[in-house]
Design a protein around this nucleic acid. Structure first.
Length: 253
DNA sequence: AACGTACCCTGCCGGC
DNA sequence: TGCCGGCAGGGTACGT
């Protein structure tokens, strides 16, 4: 009998929905608890300042950032970048562990691109003000200023915050908009479609919960040559601003 | 101002 | 079979 080859783990690339899912997992375990112990296993993570004894007052998300509000006007600002994730059962490898109350959260991140910083409220505010609005508070105003391709504009965190490579291609497929279209050239009806598509794609992602990487199916992303789920035309892959971009050449205009 | 590019890092994949 | 080079990718810093 042939040995079943386990399906290859899909590339984990946390964007807004994945970060929201992580935040929702962190909250019930750590929120309101006192930090008992912190393990910093990776010298790349520099946490100046003692965290033990602090209470985690609030855990929230802004774009793709995870924020722990601590006592004393201090905040942990975490970005998962490409491979970051939180586990709650001790994994083989992890870069950081936060033990609070009876729980522990383990920060795993094979490529070590993720960042963890301890900031004052002032420093945190400074960092976050550079971000554009959340996609749920969609405001096409800034996006309409630029001549760059709409796909590239969607990735610019100062114009709209939280969209990454996957959801950019997915939402444009849903809205039937060609990713190469100059952002400025989109018509009002297309902006409305894009807004609805973004929200729908993100909400769908969030709804999968922690199993998102096992169950998520894409319409365009990573489907080069495969038939479009609307019209069967092969999905095309192009590169825009050094990023792989996937779209249906037939139904996205 | 607006846009392009190098860089960080590791796992994976294709070619030899 | 195994090695190795190339690539992917978010965000930032820097160049044009």
């Amino acid at each position: 009998m042939r040995v079943q080859i386990p399906p290859r783990a899909p590339t984990i690339m946390p964007e807004l929905p994945e970060v929201e899912i992580v935040v929702r997992q962190l909250r019930p375990r750590l929120c309101g608890r006192i930090i008992r112990h912190v393990e910093v296993c990776d010298p790349k993570i520099k946490l100046t300042g003692q965290l033990v004894g602090d209470r985690i007052k609030k855990i929230h998300r802004r774009a793709k950032f995870i924020i722990f509000d601590l006592t004393g006007h201090r905040h942990l600002l975490i970005h998962l970048r490409m491979t970051g994730w939180f586990e709650f059962v001790r994994p083989e490898r992890y870069r950081l562990a936060i033990h609070a109350g009876k729980s522990a959260a383990y920060f795993t991140d094979s490529r070590r691109f993720g960042t963890v910083e301890l900031l004052s409220t002032r420093e945190l505010t400074c960092k976050l003000t550079k971000l554009g609005p959340e996609p749920f508070q969609f405001d096409g105003h800034r996006l309409q200023q630029t001549t760059r391709p709409i796909k590239v504009a969607l990735l610019d965190q100062s114009l709209i915050a939280g969209i990454g490579n996957i959801y950019a291609s997915e939402s444009l497929w849903r809205a039937r908009i060609n990713p190469q279209r100059p952002s400025r050239r989109l018509r009002p009806a297309e902006w409305r479609r894009l807004q609805r598509s973004l929200v729908a794609a993100l909400r769908k992602g969030i709804s999968y919960g922690p199993r998102i990487f096992d169950v998520q199916e894409f319409f365009a992303y990573d489907r080069t040559g495969k038939p479009c789920r609307r019209c069967r035309t092969p999905i095309r892959r192009i590169v825009l601003a050094q990023r792989a971009t996937f779209f249906c050449p037939h139904c996205q205009h």
